[in-house]
Design a protein around this nucleic acid. Structure first.
Lengths: 103, 103
DNA sequence: ATAATATATCAATATATCTCGATGCATGAA
DNA sequence: TTCATGCATCGAGATATATTGATATATTAT
């Protein structure tokens, strides 16, 4: 029950849908890439990433000072279905632009 | 986008999950049946039914003064998946008890 | 050690959602 | 018409969630 509510709650927000789709399209991105592509302040993004991660959609791979987020694998059927449904949505996902100084 | 958010928003509430599962199990129930089974006030139930209906999960069949709610058919794959996922949840769904005076 | 960069968390505020009680509307019985 | 019943909707208060700016932590370079 709790994890179900966390899962659907995570995708019940347009900002998170766009971030999730962005990661789905770009495979592995760090927070500053998202910050750069979406023009949002970092704290806001970090918060949403945490929610998506705790809902089971994302995994993090920390390398040095960077945190690379990607779609968690393996992903169960239910979350796969949700991701697919999100892929059908028509919204503007910004282009990937390297956001960090280590370009 | 809007309808997606409506859909996941509708199942992002424990009360609605329980009502939805109750209807799924009992096929066709009127508002007072739910009122009686769940011991909730009618306005609360009516509000949740409206949200579930507008999210595409339910349909209404009005007969006289009664409004019979049931799972909408046909139901698209995404909502079917959600319903299935809800069926796996472990929560107490009350027994059906005839709630109306027309018993 | 100091500074810069990347990320996470916190507190305050704004916004959305849930719940309740009251009210309105429609149907059907008396 | 008058009343009771079933359902829907509204307003107010309570609770939850999102956003921002400030701050904290961690890593790496100098």
């Amino acid at each position: 029950m709790d994890i179900f509510l966390k899962t659907v709650g995570a995708v019940n927000d347009e900002t998170r849908l766009r971030i999730l789709r962005f990661i789905d399209l770009n495979k592995e991105v760090c927070v500053c890439d998202i910050e750069n592509a979406f023009d949002m302040i970092q704290s806001r993004i970090s918060r949403h990433l945490k929610i998506l991660k705790e809902a089971g959609f994302l995994s993090v791979n920390r390398k040095g000072r960077w945190a690379y987020y990607s779609i968690r694998t393996p992903l169960d059927k239910f979350r796969q279905n949700i991701l697919e449904e999100i892929s059908f949505l028509e919204f503007n996902i910004p282009e990937f632009k390297q956001g960090c100084k280590n370009g």
